Amino acid sequence: MGIIIQKMMGWVFIVGLLIFFSGLSSLNLAEKLLAFFVIISIGLFALRLITKDLIPRDKLEMEIKKVDELKSDAIRDVSHEFRNNISFIFNAVGLLKDEVEKSSPDKRRIRELFNTISMYSRRFESQISSILQFGMLERMEDTEKEKVDVPAIINNVVKEHGEVAKEKGLKIITKIEKVPYMLGNSELIRTLVRNLVSNAVKFTDKGCVRIACKKQDNDMMILVEDTGVGIKKENIEKLFRPYSKLDPLKDGIGVGLVICKKIVNLHKGTIKVESKLGKGTKFTILIPIRAC
């Protein structure tokens, strides 16, 4: 009831001001200026009365609670990933110590444990780097531009993931047309391609990963497609939500695609996702070339 009375008072103020304003023609210049400032002051007060509590308090509290829950979930998931990596490293270090202290240590076992420590250390480093990069990109409004050789970046990223793909029995197929240099940030474009290819390899257990690059009108088109698990239609919008993981069993902290989205936005481009559950996923990126 208090809010209704408040708003009625606001409208009464405004109507009164309109009536008052209609009688200003008989005033001199100084009186008109004084009346003008009075009208502005009272008008702002009336506007404040009308718009106050425009968003219901319970709805606002619900939104704040929702944000807090998302934040708590994100912290929990990231902490869980960190603990897992540290736990694997500590366990491997303990086993390695036991093996080395044996009178006849097994060299093959030692190599396996070293590889385990190395793998989880790299994974841990990658996760921390992703969080730091995500934080940096969140604060960026623009980025320095230079000549970017997109085909060279794609070829290098494919080499980086070649061994992992081979171990999974996957083929990485590239179709790269002759394209001009693009004006952009080389390191960010490299991160964009690396994150997309890494996800494609990670979520594909059989079949292949296709990567294409071509010029489309005034844009550079980068396409990354896989024959992996696919994504439910209702989950596609969650892909670009920070710290959102669709598969809790896969490693990662849920910022890779968020970083991709931010990089594309910084280059004034677009990113499109198409996916069918059990069939695979396709990411299509269009970034203005801006001839250099």
Rank of each mutant, 00 (worst) to 15 (best):
residue 2 G to D: 04
residue 2 G to K: 04
residue 2 G to M: 02
residue 5 I to L: 14
residue 9 M to D: 01
residue 10 G to M: 09
residue 11 W to V: 09
residue 12 V to Q: 03
residue 18 L to A: 13
residue 27 L to Y: 14
residue 28 N to L: 02
residue 31 E to N: 06
residue 32 K to F: 08
residue 34 L to C: 06
residue 35 A to D: 06
residue 36 F to A: 11
residue 38 V to W: 00
residue 38 V to E: 02
residue 39 I to P: 05
residue 45 F to K: 02
residue 46 A to V: 06
residue 47 L to K: 02
residue 48 R to A: 14
residue 48 R to S: 13
residue 50 I to L: 12
residue 50 I to P: 14
residue 53 D to H: 03
residue 55 I to S: 03
residue 56 P to F: 12
residue 57 R to W: 02
residue 58 D to L: 01
residue 63 E to R: 04
residue 65 K to N: 02
residue 68 D to K: 07
residue 70 L to F: 14
residue 82 F to V: 15
residue 84 N to R: 05
residue 87 S to Q: 08
residue 92 A to T: 11
residue 94 G to V: 04
residue 94 G to W: 01
residue 94 G to L: 00
residue 96 L to D: 11
residue 98 D to C: 04
residue 99 E to Y: 10
residue 100 V to S: 00
residue 101 E to S: 08
residue 101 E to G: 02
residue 102 K to D: 11
residue 103 S to Q: 07
residue 108 R to I: 07
residue 113 L to P: 15
residue 113 L to E: 09
residue 116 T to N: 05
residue 119 M to V: 04
residue 120 Y to S: 00
residue 120 Y to M: 01
residue 122 R to S: 04
residue 128 I to C: 05
residue 128 I to S: 04
residue 130 S to G: 12
residue 133 Q to I: 10
residue 142 D to K: 01
residue 143 T to S: 06
residue 144 E to I: 14
residue 145 K to L: 11
residue 145 K to A: 09
residue 147 K to F: 06
residue 147 K to Y: 06
residue 154 I to F: 03
residue 155 N to R: 14
residue 155 N to V: 12
residue 159 K to M: 04
residue 159 K to D: 08
residue 163 E to Y: 04
residue 173 I to F: 13
residue 186 S to Q: 03
residue 188 L to P: 06
residue 189 I to E: 10
residue 191 T to I: 01
residue 191 T to R: 00
residue 194 R to A: 13
residue 195 N to K: 00
residue 195 N to T: 05
residue 195 N to F: 03
residue 196 L to M: 12
residue 200 A to Q: 13
residue 200 A to D: 15
residue 200 A to L: 07
residue 200 A to V: 09
residue 201 V to F: 07
residue 204 T to D: 03
residue 207 G to N: 06
residue 208 C to A: 12
residue 211 I to T: 11
residue 216 Q to F: 07
residue 217 D to R: 00
residue 220 M to L: 10
residue 222 I to R: 02
residue 223 L to P: 07
residue 225 E to N: 12
residue 228 G to F: 00
residue 235 N to T: 15
residue 235 N to K: 13
residue 236 I to Y: 04
residue 244 S to E: 13
residue 260 C to P: 10
residue 261 K to A: 01
residue 262 K to R: 08
residue 263 I to R: 00
residue 263 I to D: 02
residue 269 G to L: 05
residue 273 V to W: 09
residue 275 S to L: 05
residue 276 K to S: 10
residue 278 G to Y: 09
residue 281 T to C: 12
residue 285 I to M: 00
residue 286 L to H: 03
residue 286 L to R: 00
residue 287 I to L: 05
residue 288 P to F: 05
